[in-house]
C-alpha cells in the first residue's frame, strides 16, 4: 500500500471533525433490531457510520486526499479495539481454562470456511481478495490482522471488509436462521451446534443459540453455557488461530490453486483442454 505521511494525517482536521460528528450523530441514533423469522437483523451505529461516511465521499465535503488520510486512523483504531478485547478476556481466564480442550479443538472448525469458501471464491474469479475473504469468519480481530499485514486498501483488505460487512449486517440473522434449521434437519446433536454458535460475534451467538433454545427448550442451560464458552474462546484464540494456522493455510492453498490454474491455461489453451 502507498504510505501517507502520518504528520499530514494528524493535521487533517477537516477529516477528524467530520468523523467526530458522524460518531456523535450515529451513536445518538442508537441501535435498532428488525425481527426476521427466528433471528434479527441488527442495525448498529457503526453501520450507519460506515454508510454515511461512504456517502460523504461522493459529496464535496470529503476529498480524495481526506479519504486516503483516513486509512492510518483505521489501522491504529483497530489496535485499540484489540487492546479492549484483550482486557475483556484477562479476567475470565479461569472460565476459559475450565471450558477445556473440547472447546479448543472445536476452534478448528474455522478451517471449514477455508475448504468450502476458498475454492468457491477462486471459482467466482476472485484473486488475492479471496485470502482476506475466506481465511476466517472475518470478525474484528481478523480484520485487524489483515489490515495490519496487507493494508486496508489491498485486495486482501477489500476481501476481509466485504465479509466483515456482510457479517455485521446479516451475520446474526443468517446464523439464527441456519442454526435452528440445521439442528432440526441434521443428525448432529444440538449441543454441537451450541458450540458452533460461538464462532462469531456476541450478537451472532445470541441469535444462533437463541433459535437452538427455541427448538430444544429442555436443553436451554447447557446450550447457553456451551455457546458462551465457545464465544469467549473464539474471542481469545481466534486471532492467534488466524495468525498461525488460518491465514498461512489459506495463502498456501490459494497459491496451489493458482499454480494449477496457470498450468492448465499454459498447457491446453482452449476451454476444452
Amino acid at each position: 500500500m502507498e504510505k501517507v505521511e502520518l504528520k499530514t494525517v494528524i493535521k487533517d482536521w477537516r477529516l477528524h471533525a467530520i468523523a467526530f460528528i458522524l460518531v456523535a450523530i450515529t451513536e445518538a441514533i442508537g441501535q435498532f433490531s428488525i425481527a426476521v423469522g427466528p433471528g434479527v437483523i441488527l442495525l448498529l451505529p457503526m453501520l450507519y457510520a460506515f454508510f454515511l461516511g461512504l456517502g460523504l465521499y461522493f459529496t464535496p465535503l470529503i476529498s480524495e486526499k481526506n479519504a486516503k488520510n483516513a486509512e492510518p486512523l483505521i489501522i491504529l483504531g483497530v489496535t485499540l479495539l484489540i487492546a479492549k478485547i484483550g482486557v475483556t478476556i484477562g479476567p475470565q481466564i479461569e472460565a476459559i481454562i475450565a471450558a477445556g480442550p473440547a472447546l479448543l479443538l472445536q476452534e478448528l472448525g474455522n478451517l471449514g470456511t477455508i475448504f468450502l469458501a476458498l475454492p468457491l471464491a477462486v471459482l467466482l474469479g476472485f484473486r488475492r481478495e479471496s485470502i482476506g475473504m475466506t481465511h476466517s469468519i472475518a470478525r474484528e480481530p481478523n480484520v485487524g490482522l489483515i489490515v495490519n499485514k496487507f493494508g486496508f486498501s489491498s485486495p486482501e483488505g477489500r476481501g476481509v471488509m466485504a465479509v466483515y460487512i456482510f457479517g455485521t449486517v446479516f451475520g446474526a440473522v443468517f446464523l439464527g436462521l441456519i442454526s435452528g434449521l440445521l439442528a432440526t434437519a441434521t443428525p448432529l446433536h444440538p449441543l454441537s451446534f451450541a458450540m458452533a454458535s460461538g464462532v462469531g460475534s456476541g450478537s451472532m451467538m445470541a441469535a444462533a443459540s437463541g433459535s437452538l433454545i427455541g427448538a430444544y427448550p429442555e436443553l436451554e442451560e447447557q446450550i447457553v453455557a456451551f455457546a458462551g464458552a465457545s464465544n469467549l474462546l473464539s474471542l481469545s484464540t481466534g486471532l492467534y488461530f488466524s495468525i498461525f494456522i488460518g491465514l498461512p493455510l489459506t495463502e498456501k492453498l490459494y497459491s496451489i490453486m493458482m499454480r494449477r490454474s496457470e498450468r492448465k491455461a499454459a498447457k491446453g489453451g482452449g476451454p476444452n483442454a
Partner: peptide, 24 residues
C-alpha cells in the same frame, strides 16, 4: 462476494459443529 460470505459463515458454523460433535 455475497455468495462467498455465505459460504464462509456456513463453512465455519458447520465445521465447528462437526468437530464439536466428534469430541463431545
Amino acid at each position: 462476494s455475497f455468495l462467498v460470505a455465505i459460504a464462509v459463515f456456513l463453512g465455519t458454523f458447520i465445521g465447528s459443529a462437526l468437530i464439536a460433535e466428534v469430541i463431545l
